[in-house]
């Protein structure tokens, strides 16, 4: 049996096709999100990779910011529950999830069965999100993918203290013009992101294992900064961008199985 999870975020679209609730046979990501051609393209890509058709899916569940605009889906589940489901499947020892996406930062505490015990997320402010990093990468003229490398070379992280993304951008610009090394600025930017996420994590209660997911988890500089702040190791979920889509596909599988019992 095949099930599908579709996660439409603010800045990327993800699809996972799952076989019998256990094997990921497609896990695709396109870096544009809701309202764009991303959702349709990623769906087509996943199906063609798996060599399957939409009709082959026993159930499709959508999640993420754009979840209600996915016509193909039979149901919507919040990204909080899906993220928990997906991460717990990949890392059964997970107790705390830190998920940083395009416009959301979340900390999710799991119970021993992988259920959501508590979660906190940012509200109406983009500080500490993927968008924040986007903006910084642009002013610094460093690709997002290269930020971790720069971070690793930092000698003395600069301080980026503004919460507001726009003000932080000016702060970074003035540091650049003062000749502060990009490496140190980037480490400071990562620290700023980490401090927002850790604030939420502390409210949830920090307990190992700590797993990071979401697009920003690919930036190992952020992972390093979070780990340093929490003084604990942080595991990056395998393929961290697709964990919520995976969770949605698992939910879909469980629902079909439950109905067939």
């Amino acid at each position: 049996m095949f099930t599908m999870g579709i996660d439409i975020g603010s800045s990327s679209s993800k699809v996972v096709i799952l076989e019998d609730g256990a094997n990921i046979i497609a896990g695709e990501v396109i870096q544009i999100g809701t309202g764009s051609s991303g959702p349709k393209r990623v769906l087509d890509e996943a199906l063609s990779k798996a060599g399957l058709k939409l009709e082959d899916m026993a159930k499709i569940i959508a999640t993420g910011y754009g979840r209600s605009s996915v016509e193909e889906a039979h149901k919507q589940i919040s990204e909080i529950s899906c993220q928990a489901k997906g991460v717990f499947f990949l890392v059964p020892s997970a107790k705390l999830i830190i998920d940083i996406g395009g416009q959301d930062v979340k900390a999710i505490r799991l119970d021993s069965k992988g259920g959501v015990k508590q979660f906190f997320m940012n509200d109406k402010c983009a500080a500490g999100t993927g968008r924040f990093l986007d903006v910084m990468s642009r002013v610094l003229e460093v690709n997002l993918d290269d930020m971790a490398e720069y971070d690793a070379r930092a000698t003395e992280p600069a301080t980026v203290s503004s919460t507001c993304t726009v003000f932080a951008e000016s702060e970074v610009i003035s540091q650049l013009s003062n000749g502060v090394a990009k490496e140190n600025i980037i480490a400071g930017v990562h620290q700023s992101v980490a401090s927002k996420a850790c604030g939420l994590a502390y409210r949830c209660g920090v307990e190992e294992d700590i797993v990071m997911c979401g697009g920003v988890a690919k930036d190992l500089g952020v992972v390093r900064a979070i780990s340093k702040e929490l003084k604990k190791p942080v595991i990056v979920a395998p393929n961290p961008q697709i964990t919520a889509a995976l969770g949605a596909a698992i939910f879909a599988f469980e629902e079909v199985r439950g109905a067939n019992k």
Partner: peptide
């Protein structure tokens, strides 16, 4: 708001 109340509902 919707995301939060849906998550609450699921919890």
């Amino acid at each position: 708001f919707d995301t939060r109340i849906q998550a609450l509902d699921e919890m």
